[in-house]
Simulated assay, not measured.
Amino acid sequence: MLRRLAVTAAVSLVALSTAAAPAAVAAPAPVPLLPVPLFLDSPQGPWAPQEGGDTGSQDATMRMTVTVTDSGDRAADGTFELVCGTDRAGGTHAKAQAACDRLAKARAADENPFLPTPAGAMCTQIHGGPATARIVGTWQGKHFSAHLNRVNGCEISRWNNLVPVVPTV
């Protein structure tokens, strides 16, 4: 009986070690592309040029409406217009120039600060408060809609990445 147990264990160990070896040297599986459900005009996001339209050039004007609630600062809560052009920043946003500078920096780095947190992301369970923001508009020649909150570490990071478009909380 003991001999049979030892032989079974040895055979199992050999089988497992040979089965695990190819997995250890195999190339990692490609990461699937995530859909961008918040972009209304294009499944490719705001970076893809529209046919016959703006290609996201430096002279493109970005217009958006930022609605903030429950930020803890009455002056920061409300609905504000933000207009960013090559030679001006305007609208009713209190920090229009700084907000436009932040968006220009993201565009220069080919970042999309409006993308949602990927499904299945591991996020710390830290609650950053009840603040919410909705940003709707045109950027890079594309219409978009984004919703931000501070319900966990990933969402707090998204929010902080868009300061001063949204207020510091």
Rank of each mutant, 00 (worst) to 15 (best):
A96F: 06
T8A: 15
Q97D: 15
N161S: 14
R158L: 14
G120F: 08
V136E: 15
P49M: 01
G120I: 00
W47P: 08
A75N: 09
G52F: 14
S157A: 15
A106P: 12
T138Y: 04
H93T: 03
L103V: 08
L2P: 13
I156Y: 03
S57Y: 06
P130T: 00
S71F: 11
L16F: 11
G120A: 04
V66G: 13
I156F: 07
V14L: 15
R74S: 13
V11H: 09
C123F: 06
P30K: 00
Q44N: 11
G153E: 03
N161K: 04
V68G: 10
G128Q: 03
D59W: 13
E111F: 06
A48C: 07
A24T: 13
S42V: 00
V83W: 09
N112M: 05
D101S: 06
V68L: 07
T65V: 12
L33N: 08
T61G: 12
S145L: 01
L148S: 07
A94T: 02
P113V: 00
C154M: 08
M62I: 07
A106H: 15
A133M: 07
P113D: 04
A131V: 01
T69G: 10
P32A: 04
L5E: 13
K142P: 05
W47R: 14
A26G: 07
P49S: 08
T79S: 10
D87H: 10
L115Q: 13
A109I: 00
H93R: 10
L34Q: 14
R3V: 04
H127G: 08
N160M: 07
R102N: 11
A109Y: 08
V36L: 13
L40V: 00
D70T: 02
I156V: 03
G53E: 06
H127I: 00
G91W: 11
S12N: 09
W47G: 15
R4V: 05
A75Q: 08
D41N: 02
A48I: 01
L115P: 13
R107K: 15
A94R: 02
A98R: 04
A10N: 14
W47I: 00
A119I: 01
A75C: 01
T86W: 08
A108W: 05
P32Q: 01
A98S: 08
A20W: 09
G91A: 11
A29Q: 11
K95W: 04
G137W: 08
Q140S: 09
D77A: 09
A131L: 01
D59N: 12
I126C: 03
D110N: 11
T117A: 09
F144M: 05
P22M: 00
